[in-house]
């Protein structure tokens, strides 16, 4: 099965698509229970939910403070092999496109910080990584499988979501296209 992907969406299309995803009935199968744990995966806000927490080096980070930059928000974990493979590319992109306005932010979904700290230091990742949890995951519609990444435009709007094993070449092309204009 190819990786699930909403893909790059022009902002207006993205907002409309995400709104429809919220309103759309479930595809099929048993009716949802009152205990449905997470909103449908498409049910993310057009504006990325703000959050604030410390990164693995103890520095306070807030998503909103990156307004004006193109943000690649990557949910990952050390136990996720595709995540381990994409992290060095994201780090490279941070170095290559950071001066043009890209900011990569990592959210580790590891159960504890220790393996994430080891991994980040081992690879000397060039972007901040924070520890995620169920509460933060649910703000983004649930993180019920990895890898998962969101591309957030300089105005804070989610313009693409990448789920499953990513097509990194296509992701990079979409990042380049969405970089802030000088």
């Amino acid at each position: 099965m190819p990786p699930a992907r909403i893909g790059y969406l022009p902002p207006i299309t993205a907002a409309l698509t995400l709104t429809l995803a919220v309103l759309a009935p479930r595809a099929h199968g048993a009716p949802p229970t009152p205990h449905a744990a997470a909103a449908p995966a498409g049910a993310v806000a057009a504006i990325a939910p703000d959050f604030e927490r410390d990164d693995l080096d103890g520095q306070r980070r807030q998503l909103r403070s990156y307004r004006g930059k193109l943000v690649l928000l990557s949910f990952w974990a050390t136990w996720c092999e595709p995540c381990r493979l994409e992290a060095p590319r994201f780090s490279h992109w941070q170095q290559q496109y950071g001066p043009r306005g890209l900011q990569v932010l990592g959210i580790s979904m590891d159960d504890t910080a220790a393996p994430a700290v080891e991994f980040v230091h081992q690879l000397n990742l060039a972007y901040p990584v924070m520890l995620g949890d169920a509460e933060l995951a649910e703000r983004f519609g649930g993180v019920l499988g990895l890898p998962l990444a969101f591309l957030i435009d300089p105005r804070g709007r989610i313009i693409a979501r990448y789920r499953g094993e990513p097509d990194l070449a296509r992701m990079e092309a979409e990042i380049r296209a969405a970089l802030p204009q000088p």
Binding site: R26, A27, H28, G29, A30, P40, L144
Partner: peptide
Amino acid sequence: QDFGTNWVEKGY
């Protein structure tokens, strides 16, 4: 794919 795609989103 993952639990979200193949279970939650199917409405189970």
